[in-house]
Computed example of a mutant assay.
Amino acid sequence: MLFSLGLIILFGILFGSFFERIKLPSLLGMLIAGIIIGPYGFNLIDKSVLNISGELRTFALVVILTRAGLNLDLDILRKVGISAILMCFLPATFEIFGIYLIAPKVLNISAIDSLILGAVLAAVSPAVVVPKMLKLIDEGYGRKSGIPDLIMAGASVDDIFVIVIFTALLSIRTGGSVSIFSIISIPISILLGILFGSILGNILSILFKKFNIINEKKILILLSISFVLLFFENTIKSTIPFSGLIAVMAFSASLKKKSESIARDLSKSFSSIWVFAEILLFVLVGASVNISYAFKLSYLPLIVIIFGLIFRAIGVNIAILKSDLNKKERLFTTISYMPKATVQAAISSIPLSMGISSGETILTVGVFAILFTAPIFAKLIDFSYKKLLIKD
């Protein structure tokens, strides 16, 4: 197991650094590293590591959502108004619907499996978007309009909304049924997560101010609470709808609101942890990809992905219709809301592990989405932000 983890880290760093040198996202290099050393490549990763890959991917998701929460400016989000709320679910809903329309015809999968695929593809990637928006905040671009905060908050909640939808659809696919409770549980789980997380963030702020705790221990406290929240969600989900991931981001954002200096220090430390978490996340999802099956699907996944992105773009523009953003800012917001990576890496292999007939197709299309959208839209964000946004 230790040998496998060593290989994952070394290959992830090596390939990630190479892709950065050629001006492409490092996560693409990590994905390819996983394909090479995974069971469909040279088979160098021990099965014990692959068996816990789901938990390791969840850890990576917790790190990126905590980091996003620690950098949110809630006051700016309030100024953005209803658009901030709509960005959390409307683009993803449009994309899921678009994929539901196209996937059965192109990929020959069932309607329910198309909805599951839509939920996998519909999330925007915090791994790509959050670092880009933090860079904009540092340089002062779009800050007055609240664009970095709008995109960062929307992307984070969008991910959790999609994960909740994905979990509900999986339950239906594996023998569950649609009920009124399963429908209303989605907004209730989000609201309870925000409420519980906000209370927790206020308590943590008081404790961190009252007691002299070193930064490293604060990080361990935040991570431990995050894991407990996820355990709590799994324990009570059959009776009380509750989103642990929403609570994770909410207590981070609440902590930032109450103590900006503490949040700033913690955010820097979580940036370092993310370097490790990112390697685990993308190398392990690359290891899950069956290359021969990917070649069999050929260009068909790209048709589905592009069709879904068109619907997503429509959803973004409807969400910001009532905002004060100008045409250039709306275009930048649309571009920034397109990259896929983190959630696709975290959940695209779950249907396959559960024995769902379209599982391999869902995983392969999820990886295609990362390889196609992450480099293109990451480049477009870097290329366009100085041209489309106003520097404060």
Rank of each mutant, 00 (worst) to 15 (best):
S254T: 08
F332A: 13
I320K: 03
L77M: 05
E329Y: 09
G197C: 10
A122D: 01
I96P: 02
K296A: 07
A374Y: 05
W274P: 04
S4G: 05
I184V: 10
I381C: 11
L388V: 11
V316I: 06
V164M: 14
N51W: 03
A253M: 02
W274V: 07
A127D: 07
I99F: 08
D149T: 06
I186T: 09
G34L: 09
E329G: 09
A374V: 09
P126V: 07
L169N: 00
F332I: 12
A127Y: 08
F251T: 06
I180N: 02
S177R: 12
D138P: 01
I273R: 02
M338P: 02
E216L: 14
N71V: 08
A378Y: 10
L50H: 10
S288Q: 15
V178T: 12
F377K: 01
K340V: 05
A263S: 13
Y40T: 08
F251N: 11
I32A: 04
I109A: 02
K218M: 15
I160D: 10
A247P: 11
L281W: 00
I370L: 06
L200D: 06
S336P: 05
K132M: 15
E260I: 12
I303C: 06
A155L: 04
L115K: 03
L255A: 08
K23E: 14
G201Q: 02
K256C: 08
E20M: 15
D113V: 00
F196C: 15
V129K: 03
S336V: 05
I13Y: 13
K327R: 13
I206E: 12
F19W: 11
I194E: 03
S292M: 11
L107D: 07
I37S: 12
G6I: 06
S114G: 14
A345S: 08
K258Y: 12
L280T: 03
S125P: 07
F242N: 13
S48I: 14
L280F: 14
M354N: 01
K135E: 13
G355C: 09
E20Y: 14
V63W: 04
D324R: 12
M1F: 13
A127T: 13
F161N: 07
L136M: 14
A60R: 02
R21H: 12
D158P: 00
F19T: 15
L331Q: 08
R173S: 06
S17W: 14
V120C: 01
V228D: 05
N212A: 07
G12F: 02
A287S: 15
S189Y: 07
F94N: 02
K209S: 14
L195C: 11
T333I: 09
V80R: 04
T364Q: 03
L28P: 06
L134I: 11
N215G: 14
F19P: 04
S177N: 11
G69H: 04
L136W: 04
P131W: 07
G16A: 03
K327A: 11
I116H: 02
S353K: 13
P91G: 01
Y100R: 08
D265S: 12
I347Y: 01
T66G: 14
